[in-house]
Nucleic acid binder design. Structure first.
Lengths: 209, 209
DNA sequence: GTCTATACAGTGATAGAC
DNA sequence: GTCTATCACTGTATAGAC
């Protein structure tokens, strides 16, 4: 197992547990509220060991964000969806999208990035490319296939993809970010997706005659 | 002028300048990065004076958020729009909405609230009621008038209002939050509104026959 | 109410022994 | 490489004079 680390993964097991501890604590409490002492204790090592593996708090933070973004969004795909059955495919797509962006991990990452992008300007770009850009690209590609199959009429698929995510998201994302209400449960998510898909199809369906 | 303070405004002039200083610094740098020393210096008073007017940093922060939310969103209105000319009215509405949520102040408030809602759970509710709920209510009311005037066909105006803001917003809000690119200028905002309104109208226009 | 001065806790980061 | 002990520093909060 010693030779099978993933790319970018630290060689040492201690570095790995430090990064894991940093991920847990940063995501839970943000950058400012977490101390290097806490991370060291949580990782079961001394503070000096943390500094021997990472230049400082900022580098540790950046490493954690990059990794979480990559791992979290890389699963999103629309490649296998059927472009001739747009209602079913868009519903699946919308469901995947909402499940992804409303997941506790994604909410935590979003929260911390938005808060710290002023301190770490590079973070915005990293997150955008790992998350939203990737999902938008997948959705746009599917819409192009649907247009080619004659299932939809869309002049600007890129913009339509952005409208699709906006439509599906509504204020659900914001409600989660604000920790409102009894966390819209699974059935609410299903409703939001269904009604969003219906609206999208009404706007972009192929016009009769 | 001494007797014309607005409701909720502190009686003392110093308290007012403390709150103003807190607003500037908190919005610029977030909760954690701002010290009471900075606020005192910025307000031109001593630190002890700050503590004489506010229990501590947290109360000062809460007071600032409540006030900024109220003052910022209370201008949004859709009451005077013509429900028979939906394209023009929705474009105006969408434009007002985007101008509001993409303004530097709104972005700063959003950023700081999303970041600190874990520490101050009440903040989410305060923000939601002062901002999104109010704008959604205005939009919903306009949509109901448009339906009554026979200009649109909408079964659930509340949900349609949420879809409208999602459609107009797309990823523009996120791009601003992440500080990406050369800050989509005014013409981009205009395009986003126009194309969003077109899509909304295609989905909810009155069907012929 | 307002100020100056200060006690106190906790932070990021490092030195030196093993 | 890893630890314990400690550095210099910053921010919160309070005491006491005016």
């Amino acid at each position: 197992m010693e030779g099978t680390e993933q790319v970018d993964a630290p060689v040492s097991g201690k570095a790995e547990s430090i990064l894991a501890a940093a991920t847990r604590t940063f995501l839970a409490d943000g950058f400012g509220a977490v101390s290097m002492d806490t991370i060291a204790r949580e990782a079961g090592v001394s503070k000096a060991t943390v500094y021997s593996h990472f230049t400082g708090k900022e580098e540790l933070f950046g490493a954690m964000v990059g990794r979480v973004c990559e791992r979290h969004f890389e699963t999103f795909s629309a490649r296998e969806l059927d472009p001739t059955d747009v209602r079913t495919s868009l519903t699946t797509l919308g469901r995947r999208f909402l499940d992804l962006v409303l997941s506790p991990d994604a909410i935590a990452v979003h929260r911390i990035i938005v808060a710290e992008v002023s301190r770490f300007p590079a973070l915005g770009e990293v997150f955008w490319r790992a998350g939203p850009e990737r999902t938008l690209g997948q959705i746009e590609a599917f819409l192009r296939r649907a247009v080619a199959a004659g299932s939809l009429e869309i002049a600007q698929p890129r913009i339509a993809a952005e409208q699709f995510v906006g439509l599906i998201r509504g204020e659900n994302h914001l409600r989660h970010l604000l920790r409102l209400g009894p966390e819209s449960d699974k059935s609410d998510i299903g409703d939001a997706v269904r009604v969003g898909v219906e609206t999208f199809i009404r706007a972009f369906r192929v016009r009769a005659g």
